[in-house]
């Protein structure tokens, strides 16, 4: 796999620090995992950051990969564009181990990017980020007419929908008739 690794500066597992005498347990080195999207660009992400994603957290919780195994087996998310996955990874890193604030103003303003992010975040089950994204989409809808919303979300009208359905049925009927005729011809 030709891939470019993009990761945080603290990519390597941290060396265990010498515990103070009073500390009860030694600090466990942080583990890292690798993910890539449609563009195959691999992102190195800490397990702590990935905890935001219920999907990935569930996948890695019992893996027990070594650093080498994790590197050799990046999680593929072929349904997510590279730049969108980058946004998700950045958000997870920024909010690693921190309580999430009530608002997030760093979401994309461009509707296509925002919708792609919504779908990715929903797939990866990142609850807090999904909340921010949905709030932003709700803001986008506010004050718009049904026609404007249809345009933003690229939704056909019911009439267009029905016409397309009729057309599809017609086409399917023709194809079926064609197949029957061909089959009859073959039989002769």
């Amino acid at each position: 796999m030709s891939s470019t690794e993009q990761g945080t500066s603290s990519a390597a597992p941290a060396e265990p620090t010498t515990a103070p005498e009073s500390a009860a347990a030694p600090e466990v080195p942080e583990s890292f995992y690798y993910v890539h999207g449609k563009d195959k660009v691999v992102h190195k992400v800490s397990a702590g950051a990935l905890q935001h994603s219920a999907l990935i957290h569930g996948m890695i919780s019992n893996l027990g990969y070594t650093e080498e195994q994790a590197k050799a087996n990046p999680f593929p998310f072929e349904n997510i564009d590279g730049d969108i996955l980058q946004m998700v990874v950045d958000w997870c890193n920024q909010h690693k181990g921190k309580p999430t604030p009530p608002e997030d103003t760093n979401l994309p303003k461009q509707k296509e990017k925002l919708f792609d992010l919504v779908l990715a975040v929903n797939y990866l089950e990142i609850k807090e980020l999904l909340t921010y994204c949905c709030k932003q989409v709700a803001m986008m809808v506010k004050g718009k007419s049904p026609e404007e919303i249809r345009e933003i979300w690229m939704i056909p009208t019911d009439a267009e929908d029905e016409a397309a359905e009729k057309e599809a049925k017609k086409r399917a009927g023709k194809e079926a008739a064609g197949e029957t005729a061909a089959a009859a011809g073959d039989a002769k």
Binding site: F115, V118, L119, N122, L130, T131, C134, K135, V137, A138, V141, K142, G143, K144, S145, P146, I149, R150, W153, I155, P156, T157, D158, D161
Partner: peptide
């Protein structure tokens, strides 16, 4: 949009927006 996403968007919309969304399609 998946159902969960739509549910979330509706939850964060105001009454007027939801009425408008009802008119978008059947």
């Amino acid at each position: 949009m998946p159902e969960l996403v739509m549910e979330n968007i509706i939850k964060f919309s105001d009454f007027k927006s939801v009425l408008t969304l009802r008119q978008v399609s059947k």
